[in-house]
């Protein structure tokens, strides 16, 4: 009976309403093939990536950068590349940085630490002298940021290895938000922690964001008003930043962002073509039924 019903449906209807598993299979094939055959393509160059890069280039050496590492396993494909490229740039410029993590997303601490240790080892940087990762902080909203901004040592107390912040050589010079030249938040949602409301607007510390593609479109009003000074949006943002640091000679390794966008291009093309085919099939099906009615 199913076969008879299928016969009655026209070709265009069958195309429009095909079994989704066919789509899954074709899509999987596209992704797998282009993963194996990495095609070198020109990396996009968004404006806000360039602005962040120039901002980091102009940062003073006597202040630190505060990185809010809040990405999870779900957005590793986008945020890990952003985080890695950013810290490589900071290391190359000998700018010290502190990494803040949250208990609401403990994966960020673990994943961030893995990347940090790997990059630090490769670039010869020392934990405690060139960078510090704090213990996780409970996210109680703006009040947490207020306390953190006023007194980092008193609020955070220890670093991830259990050492008192006062004993860490680097932290002797960085006690409050006044010693921070840039805050960089890398997370699924750049606005999840209210840095703008409680730190950027109160102390004037510049804020930049590296976020998943979903949330990046909500950042543009803040970029326009100057509350955000730079944005790395998704894997494309990571790839663009990686390209800049490769061009600057900081590293020769192709990052995960670049590898991802190459495959993403073709997968996106597949989806666009399939949507267009579906719409074309819809129009043809309508035309056919109109002709049949006539």
């Amino acid at each position: 009976m199913m076969a008879e019903e299928n016969k009655k449906r026209s070709l265009w209807d069958r195309i429009q309403f095909c079994d989704p598993r066919i789509l899954y299979a074709l899509f999987a094939v596209v992704v797998i093939v282009f993963e194996m055959v990495q095609v070198k393509m020109p990396v996009p160059n968004p404006v806000w990536v360039g602005k962040l890069y120039e901002k980091v280039e102009s940062l003073p050496l006597d202040k630190a950068v505060l990185i809010d590492c809040d990405y999870g396993a779900g957005n590793r494909g986008e945020c890990e590349g952003q985080f890695k490229a950013f810290i490589q740039h900071l290391f190359a410029r000998n700018i010290k940085f502190m990494v803040v993590t949250w208990t609401t997303n403990v994966e960020g601490q673990k994943l961030g630490r893995q990347v940090l240790d790997e990059v630090a080892k490769k670039m010869g940087k020392v934990d405690g002298e060139d960078y510090v990762m704090f213990q996780a902080i409970v996210n109680a909203g703006g009040v947490t940021l207020q306390s953190l901004a006023k007194d980092i040592h008193g609020f955070v107390v220890k670093d991830i290895n259990g050492r008192d912040l006062g004993e860490i050589p680097m932290m002797k010079n960085f006690k409050s938000i006044n010693d921070v030249s840039l805050i960089y938040r890398v997370a699924y949602s750049w606005g999840g922690i209210p840095w703008i409301g409680f730190v950027q607007s109160v102390y004037g510390t510049p804020l930049a964001a590296g976020s998943a593609g979903i949330e990046s479109s909500t950042a543009y009003p803040y970029l326009d008003s100057g509350q955000l000074c730079g944005l790395l949006a998704g894997a494309a943002g990571a790839a663009a930043y990686e390209k800049r640091i490769i061009d600057a000679g900081i590293t020769e390794e192709t990052g995960i962002g670049t590898k991802t966008v190459s495959v993403q291009s073709f997968a996106t093309l597949f989806v666009v073509v399939s949507i267009l085919i579906s719409n074309f099939a819809m129009f043809m099906s309508k035309a056919q039924s109109r002709r049949a009615n006539v």
């Binding site: 393509m41 996009p44 160059n45 949006a233 790839a239 291009s265 996106t268 989806v271």
Partner: peptide, 14 residues
């Protein structure tokens, strides 16, 4: 959606 997707990808640059 299409412009946004393709424009941000290397295929868009190409």
């Amino acid at each position: 959606a299409i412009v946004c997707m393709v424009g941000q990808m290397p295929i868009g640059e190409l």
